[in-house]
């Protein structure tokens, strides 16, 4: 795979997003903002789960670490969000290394349960360490982001900024996927023993995937904090981890385009289906289950019979196909 795809993907995201930002009303712009932020988190999850096969039910804890980092640095220490963001992301990465080193020796459901326990523990600490986190009252009055003296106060200008971050994130993810490191992750997912036979340091690759995923999560968390300007432990509960995972599954695991599509769909879907009321979550469960059974490679895996695959260079699906092909 060439370098073209990631760049193209970034450009497509920017153009499509800018176009939409001109057409939509505030309410939909807000949803789009939330979807873009989720998409960054889900692209991150894709490193761990989609590429390296590490099942994580604790992704929201890393989103939360990033968000709390930004919120605390800006409100307690009065830092500029521009300084707080990278520091919070770096802090989260260190946290992920510390967590990952012991945890990633686990696999399958052990890892799933351990990460679930991690997320539950994170919520508990965030809710109870009142002196630092404000408890369940959360942290409010997080400052707005400023670009050249202009506050990103309205949904539209924030969306432009978030889109730029998403475009860069997606492009970088594409580059990593196409690189030796991305292939190493996929090799580890497919067969650890074989991977280690070819000289891949399995532990290092897993840690790298896990830390990359937490970095993306922290970026998303920081963006979330600056967008909502209020955060509380509820925003990072394990239910959100399940939602991120569902976004990836619905969109198509192992695919960046899938991650973005899944985030978009599962952000807008509950709003479109508001009329369902209490029935929405029941529907959501069945929907995810149906995708798992009938469309195991997600929305990007959907093929109209006999089309698209002919020319192996067609953009999104081709990339998924590439990642799928190495899978047994």
């Amino acid at each position: 795979m060439s370098m073209r795809f990631p760049l193209l993907l970034g450009i497509v995201i920017l153009i499509a997003g800018l176009g939409l930002s001109m057409l939509l009303t505030d309410y939909h712009l807000r949803l789009l903002n939330l979807a873009v932020i989720s998409a960054i988190a889900v692209i991150g999850l894709n490193f761990a789960f989609g590429y390296a096969g590490l099942i994580s039910l604790g992704h929201a804890a890393f989103v939360g670490t990033g968000a709390y980092g930004v919120a605390l640095l800006t409100t307690l220490l009065g830092w500029s969000p521009w300084l707080a963001l990278p520091v919070a992301v770096a802090g989260t990465a260190i946290f992920a290394v510390l967590i990952g080193l012991p945890l990633l020796r686990l696999k399958g459901h052990y890892l799933a349960l351990a990460t679930l326990g991690l997320n539950v523990s994170f919520s508990m600490v965030a809710a109870n360490w009142i002196e630092l986190t404000g408890g369940t009252n959360g942290i409010s009055r997080i400052p707005e982001l400023q670009v050249a003296g202009h506050a990103l106060a309205d949904e539209r200008s924030y969306l432009w900024f978030a889109l730029a971050v998403l475009a860069v994130s997606a492009a970088v993810a594409g580059l990593i996927h196409a690189s030796r490191h991305g292939r190493a992750m996929i090799a580890v997912r497919d067969d650890e023993t074989a991977a280690s036979m070819t000289g891949i340091d399995v532990t290092r690759v897993k840690i790298a995937a896990f830390v990359l995923s937490s970095i993306y999560a922290a970026v998303a968390g920081g963006l979330f904090a600056c967008h909502m300007r209020f955060i509380s432990p509820e925003d990072f509960s394990y239910a959100h981890s399940i939602t991120y995972l569902a976004m990836l599954i619905v969109g198509g695991e192992g695919s960046i385009v899938g991650a973005i599509l899944g985030a978009l769909l599962l952000t807008f879907l509950p709003e479109w289906l508001r009329f369902l009321g209490s029935a929405y979550l029941a529907f959501f469960g069945v929907f995810v289950l149906a995708i798992l059974v009938f469309l195991p490679s997600g929305l990007v895996g959907f093929r109209w019979p006999g089309s698209l695959r002919r020319d192996g260079r067609s953009k999104g699906p081709a990339m998924v196909a590439a990642s799928k092909e190495v899978r047994p």
Binding site: T25, D26, Y27, L31, L34, M228, P270, E271
Partner: peptide, 16 residues
């Protein structure tokens, strides 16, 4: 029971 949904609901009403 969600902060995010509460804000969505508010923006939706304010907008529409």
């Amino acid at each position: 029971a969600s902060n995010s949904t509460a804000v969505n609901a508010f923006v939706k009403l304010a907008q529409e």
